[in-house]
């Protein structure tokens, strides 16, 4: 140990004052004294947060899904049952929206990929580096606006007196407005509108990393443009496709407000089924919890399987 410092008197800066303060010295020595203590200090808050705030809710949800009732009336103990889970498998009103949500989200994910891939490719490979940021910002701005406002904007676009119908009428293609709204179509347009950024960014960053000379080398070897695309660009952007698709799929399955606003009776999504168990009858929480658990397990499993198929391992999921 170095000998105790002698401090002279006089006015000090805050840091000098702190360094000379006996209290701080002893707090610092006791909290930061060893490597282990420093690690504990650094790790405690994030790890407790991750467990309490991130894992806690999911475990509690799983737990409640096996209750016979929740919230409990005073003095009543919950008994464990699988009734809530069973309800899902025997009630078409529940499992149909569930499968509809999965299939619909899957289709939308693919549609988004097909729509956004050329955009990302153009941005990453054809826009000069110096202007990429500008072109990217142009498409980023609309995504900063919230879900509800953008959903509303789609309503205005697709309504019976919306821009599209008016334009079609004006062009003489139709006499009567096409009822776009409250259908799977309007919902699809809306969801793609909401999620395409999550496809664009991973694709863009994957495509941007492919060296240009790869394509030139292949061209030298006599590969035509399509062959080059299938054999080189597409495989090399696989990571981007994988994470883009997973993100879009997970987000798409989780929308609640958009299907309620844009969708119709034939396009009820599972999120609404889940929400109804909370809104309508207050004692059906276990059902909602079971439904959410089923959805969580299914979507995460599908995402993991998909990533596995795409050959992404050990890279995290983002």
């Amino acid at each position: 140990m170095p000998p105790q410092e002698e401090y002279s008197t006089g006015s000090r800066s805050f840091w000098s004052w702190l360094a000379t303060s006996k209290v701080y010295q002893s707090v610092s020595a006791s909290l930061l004294g060893t490597k282990k203590r420093r690690l504990v200090l650094l790790a405690a808050v994030p790890i407790i947060w991750a467990i309490v705030a991130n894992l806690g809710p999911l475990f509690k949800m799983l737990d409640i899904s096996f209750y016979d009732a929740y919230p409990l009336s005073k003095g009543r103990e919950a008994t464990y049952t699988i009734a809530a889970w069973r309800e899902f498998f025997v009630t078409p009103v529940y499992y149909i929206p569930f499968f509809r949500t999965l299939i619909f989200s899957g289709i939308l994910t693919f549609a988004t990929l097909v729509l956004v891939y050329p955009v990302a490719y153009f941005l990453a490979r054809h826009v000069p580096k110096s202007r990429q940021m500008l072109f990217l910002l142009l498409v980023l701005i609309p995504f900063w606006v919230g879900e509800i406002i953008r959903t509303y904007a789609i309503m205005i676009l697709l309504g019976n007196n919306g821009a599209i119908n008016i334009a079609l009428k004006f062009l003489g293609i139709i006499d009567r407005p096409i009822p776009f709204m409250y259908t799977s179509f309007s919902l699809g347009i809306g969801i793609v509108y909401l999620v395409s950024l999550y496809m664009l960014l991973p694709l863009y960053s994957a495509l941007e990393k492919i060296p240009t000379n790869m394509n030139e080398a292949a061209a030298d070897l006599g590969a035509g443009p399509w062959r080059r695309f299938w054999r080189i660009t597409l495989p090399l952007s696989k990571d981007g496709i994988a994470s883009g698709c997973v993100l879009v799929f997970l987000i798409a399955t989780g929308f609640y407000a958009t299907p309620v606003i844009l969708g119709g009776p034939s396009s009820t999504m599972f999120a609404e089924s889940i929400a109804n168990t909370f809104n309508v009858a207050a004692d059906r929480w276990p059902t909602g919890a079971a439904f959410s658990s089923i959805m969580l397990i299914t979507t995460l499993t599908l995402a993991a399987v998909f990533l596995k198929i795409m050959g992404r391992r050990g890279k995290g999921y983002l």
Binding site: E5, Y7, S8, T9, G10, S11, R12, S13, W15, S16, A19, T20
Partner: peptide
Amino acid sequence: GLELKGKTKAET
């Protein structure tokens, strides 16, 4: 480094 050694403003 001087501040953290507890030097006063004038010394620093």
